[in-house]
Design a protein around this nucleic acid. Sequence first.
DNA 1: AGCGTTGTTGACTGTTCAGTACATAAATGT
DNA 2: ACATTTATGTACTGAACAGTCAACAACGCT
Lengths: 207, 207
Amino acid sequence: MARPRTFDRDHVLHAAERQFRESGYNGTSVDDISAATGLGRGSLYAAFDGKHGVLVQAMTGYFNRLGNVPAKVLAGTDDGALERLHSYLLRAVHGVPLADDVPPASDRAAAACFAGKMALEIGASDAEVQRLAAECFSMLVTAVAECVRAAQRNGDIDPDADAEDLAFLVLTVIRGTDIVGAYGHSPARLTRIAESAFALLPRVSRR
Amino acid sequence: MARPRTFDRDHVLHAAERQFRESGYNGTSVDDISAATGLGRGSLYAAFDGKHGVLVQAMTGYFNRLGNVPAKVLAGTDDGALERLHSYLLRAVHGVPLADDVPPASDRAAAACFAGKMALEIGASDAEVQRLAAECFSMLVTAVAECVRAAQRNGDIDPDADAEDLAFLVLTVIRGTDIVGAYGHSPARLTRIAESAFALLPRVSRR
DNA sequence: AGCGTTGTTGACTGTTCAGTACATAAATGT
DNA sequence: ACATTTATGTACTGAACAGTCAACAACGCT
């Protein structure tokens, strides 16, 4: 009936996400988005309702990709839970592969949490961005906490520990590495931080 | 010989810092800085060499204020080191009072690390900002590591633990709360994260 | 008192910004 | 083939932007 769009919506949003990651929200112009995505201004406004709309929908897309993490990385049997937690913690610091067709991370900027970066930049004055970012984080907290509980059931983590508190702590460390990485510290240093955090998780004292 | 300046340099830089914290670097215009500081554009350019100069010098001022933290909060006798670490960790999450005449923190945005926020926003494309922020962090790592060593000497922290690794971890948690706080989580939640982190520090196993 | 030096101010400039409007292109159903 | 509908790209608009400049003000010195 009508002319079909020639672009793939998800590809465009992903390209825009990369641009926002690189330059921040206020640091990227609509022309930058246009250049990064290959779309003209008209198409951007028609399909995504302008700059802010692109951000919101790019964050939503990121959130959806992130939704694969619990199922693909954290879920599983109780006896593998501790190792999955270890693996997630280490890989999150260098960028979790969010989907099969998405490479793990090319560089530090690509590894940091998109939602976290946007929340810190404009979350205080943009309620929608803050809400989206908080949703991302809550989803991860829930998934990590469930993995912690699995490790507790398996006798790997102290059953007296509060699983949600530990999940918050683990994810706070991961978010912290986003900033420490922005200081220019090496991937090796970030790995050490993650390993230190994992080593400190309260194990059961086997006698 | 010549007309003296009518403003206090440090006050102006502190006001500019508040503005940058609130709106980010790219989100604040020179007019915003002018309004926040009370200085005209010409004075800003004459005294600080424009927007970027104001940022660099505001970050330097922040760094200098931060330099008081080791002496005032972390340094002391070995037998108080663990408690000082505890106190620092808890207070850092809600904003360390940087000097006697500076209130601890009015709100979340004011509590977050100024250097960390700027590094995440523009550090990747601004080497000077990244370097300044990394200096801030390194200084804190050194101070916290020294406090950890004091606690180790006093038999409060496992002497086999690497003090610098622990310092990196503690400060990564603190930086992480800057982002978690930006999601809108309550101060009580941030306190729980900090307490969890402190509780997990490797103690000596007394028999 | 007047002069030289430096701080201060607000107006000005060229550029870039986000967002809009409109003309054109591409597809389907008849 | 044509009409209709939607996608696309570009030119345009008013506002906001960073940075400059020249006139003016306040002080120490002679």
